[in-house]
Computed example of a mutant assay.
Amino acid sequence: MSSSQYIKGNTLATSGAIINVDRLVNFLKSNTNITRLILRYSKINYEGIKELAKLAHLTSLDLSCNCVGTEGAKILASGNLINLTSLDLGGNEIGDEGVEALASGNLTSLTELKLYDNKIGDRGAKALASGNLQKLILLSLGWNEISNEGAEALAASGNLKNLITLKVYDNSINYRDVQTLASGNLVRLTSLIYNYCSIDETLPKNVLPQLKRKCNKRKIGEEPDSKLSEVQTSLHFDSKGFKAI
Rank of each mutant, 00 (worst) to 15 (best):
P204Y: 12
N118G: 11
N31K: 04
E149L: 06
D170Q: 14
V99A: 03
L166K: 01
R188I: 01
E93Q: 15
E230R: 10
L39C: 04
I245E: 13
N45S: 13
I220A: 11
G124W: 06
D96T: 01
S147H: 04
I94L: 06
N185I: 02
I173L: 02
R36C: 03
V207T: 10
G91F: 08
G241D: 13
V25G: 02
I7V: 00
N20A: 03
S157V: 07
E145D: 15
L58P: 00
T111D: 11
L141Q: 01
V68I: 12
N80Y: 03
Q5M: 02
G142W: 11
G158R: 15
V168M: 07
L203K: 07
K212Q: 15
I34W: 04
H236E: 14
G72A: 02
K214P: 00
R218E: 05
A53S: 08
F237W: 05
T180H: 13
S147E: 12
E51H: 09
I34Y: 00
R123E: 13
T14Q: 04
N10D: 07
E201S: 14
D96C: 00
S234M: 12
V207Q: 11
N174W: 05
L166I: 02
Y41K: 13
A153S: 07
V99N: 08
L228E: 07
R213W: 09
S2T: 09
I82K: 06
I82W: 06
D238N: 11
D177Q: 12
L163E: 02
S239E: 14
G221I: 01
S2G: 11
L37P: 07
Y116S: 12
K227L: 10
Y41Q: 09
T11M: 11
G221M: 01
E152F: 07
A73T: 07
N144Q: 07
T165V: 10
S15E: 09
L189R: 01
L128G: 05
F237K: 04
K227M: 11
S60K: 14
K243R: 13
Y46W: 08
V25E: 08
K50E: 00
C215H: 02
A17M: 13
E223A: 10
D62G: 09
S86D: 13
I137H: 10
I199L: 12
Q179H: 15
N118T: 10
F237Y: 06
G69H: 03
K205E: 12
S147P: 01
I18R: 13
A103C: 07
G131I: 05
I120N: 07
G124T: 01
T11G: 03
C65A: 15
P209N: 04
R218C: 05
K243M: 10
T190P: 04
L186N: 02
R213C: 08
S2N: 14
Y116K: 12
S3I: 03
K8T: 13
D170M: 12
A125F: 06
N195W: 08
N185A: 10
S226N: 09
L12H: 09
I19Y: 14
T202H: 10
S140W: 08
E71P: 13
G241M: 04
K227E: 11
N10W: 01
I19P: 13
K54I: 10
N195Q: 02
N92G: 01
S239G: 09
T180W: 12
K50F: 08
Q210L: 12
